[in-house]
């Protein structure tokens, strides 16, 4: 389905995840972050978003364990930066699919 956000029409699934990463840009990410209650994205947020996109492009499945070994952020910070379901929220903002792993 389609969704209009910050003046742009994007394709999303029924949970609001982008289905086409080419439609993603930074202003869109910021708008989704506002919707998700994350607020203004800091450089640390952006580091994580780029890391997630990189993993997605390499088809590496994401998990909290991967995050802890990423060298980008530790788990405590990750939860602090993206409260209430960090990997879900960060993935949504990064424009990639919702992670499926249970770990």
């Amino acid at each position: 389905m389609q969704k209009v956000i910050s003046g742009k029409t994007i394709n999303v699934n029924d949970e609001g995840y982008l289905t086409d990463l080419t439609q993603w840009d930074k202003s869109l990410a910021q708008a989704i972050a506002q919707e998700e209650g994350i607020g203004e994205l800091t450089p640390k947020h952006w580091d994580i978003i780029h890391y997630l996109q990189e993993q997605f492009k390499q088809e590496i499945p994401l998990s909290i364990r991967k995050i802890s070994k990423s060298g980008v952020v530790n788990i405590e910070e990750f939860y602090a930066l993206f409260p209430q379901g960090p990997l879900k929220k960060a993935s949504k903002i990064a424009g990639i699919p919702k992670p499926v792993s249970c770990i």
């Binding site: 909290i64 939860y79 409260p83 209430q84 379901g85 960090p86 990997l87 879900k88 249970c102 770990i103």
Partner: peptide, 11 residues
Amino acid sequence: FILANGARMEG
């Protein structure tokens, strides 16, 4: 452990 972690991952 997976149930607890899965909970946290969902907020």
